[in-house]
């Protein structure tokens, strides 16, 4: 291990420890904001693991997140199964689903994939309602646990740390190298003998896996799960916008998008409650016109300018 990576690792450990201490320092309101931010950090970073190098915009986060929340609720409410077992089942189901979707759509060029994922959350929501209506029935899905917000926060923090660790491992591996080549030029990647479809599907599966886990962890916070609340298309867009705002070409990029975005979103909710959608649109414009590489890109540009 060289000096630079020792330094990076120490910074990471300090950040993790500081993040883990938040529930002891803040309570109530600020913890609930930190929790929301942590949820989006896990979602956006895992999203960027796939969409960063490949440039395929996936709008499927809401679908996988919903699978996590819905399966936990169904298992706990209707079958008295444990939260942990249902979380594991949800993760497996979402991963398998991501594999199937990946195999069906990732061989095609990008735009088909985007459109398909856009409709996915809605499709699964309808499918779930249909199954519930015709086969399972419903008595309302309650997720009543003794988890406090601090517990949920720490679970999300753990997931985020794992996402970062995995992201680092991938970036050092042959798979990561293959992904960078695919992102630069897919034809070249195929010509040098990379199984591009397999690489893309594998990474897409990891985003599905993590989004479902996050959905499962959030279910006890919502306490009462309705399909049209957990399969939310808005969530998919927020994840994309926050990741793009932060910048996707660095592992820690989405982090720098999520934190300012969550804080500004909150401020707007308080003082200009009717302008959150407008803010979403403005952020998109700012990304497109001024921050094509996100906050990270801007920081790197500034540093380069200072250096010269």
């Amino acid at each position: 291990m060289n000096a630079a990576s020792v330094k990076n690792l120490s910074i990471a450990i300090v950040c993790i420890v500081l993040a883990a201490l938040i529930p002891f320092v803040f309570n109530g309101y600020w913890l609930s904001i930190a929790l929301t931010a942590m949820m989006y950090i896990a979602l956006s970073t895992s999203w960027a693991l796939f969409s960063g190098p490949t440039h395929y915009i996936s709008l499927a986060s809401g679908a996988f997140f919903g699978i996590g929340g819905y399966l936990v609720a169904t298992g706990m409410s209707d079958y008295n199964l444990s939260f942990w077992l249902m979380m594991a089942i949800a993760a497996v189901v979402a991963t398998v689903l991501a594999a199937l979707i990946g195999m069906a759509t990732l061989r095609l060029s990008g735009v088909y994939f985007v459109i398909f994922t856009l409709g996915l959350a809605e499709m699964i929501r309808n499918l779930v309602s249909w199954v519930q209506n015709n086969f399972l029935g419903s008595r309302g899905l309650y997720v009543l646990t003794d988890f406090t917000e601090a517990h949920i926060y720490w679970m999300l923090l753990t997931v985020s740390v794992i996402v970062f660790a995995l992201g680092w491992v991938i970036s050092q591996s042959r798979l990561g190298f293959a992904m960078r080549i695919i992102g630069n030029d897919e034809t070249v990647a195929r010509h040098v003998g990379i199984n591009t479809a397999k690489a893309k599907v594998l990474l897409f599966m990891t985003t599905g896996f993590f989004a479902a886990i996050v959905g499962a962890i959030i279910a006890p916070r919502y306490s009462y799960i309705e399909p049209n609340l957990v399969f939310s298309p808005e969530l998919s867009f927020l994840v994309v916008i926050m990741a793009l705002l932060g910048g996707m070409h660095r592992l820690w990029g989405p982090l720098l998008g999520v934190i300012p975005f969550t804080l500004i979103w909150e401020a707007i909710s308080i003082w200009l409650p009717n302008f959150t959608t407008l803010f979403l649109g403005l952020t998109f414009l700012i990304i497109v016109y001024f921050l094509p590489n996100g906050v990270v890109g801007l920081l790197e540009k500034l540093r380069a300018r200072v250096a010269t």
């Binding site: 109530g28 309101y29 913890l31 609930s32 904001i33 929301t36 959030i218 916070r221 919502y222 306490s223 009462y224 609340l229 939310s232 808005e234 909150e266 909710s269 308080i270 959150t276």
Partner: peptide, 13 residues
């Protein structure tokens, strides 16, 4: 905003 997450945050606030 008919969103449980937003609701929880608002009650905390």
């Amino acid at each position: 905003k008919t969103n449980p997450g937003e609701h929880i945050k608002a009650v905390q606030r």
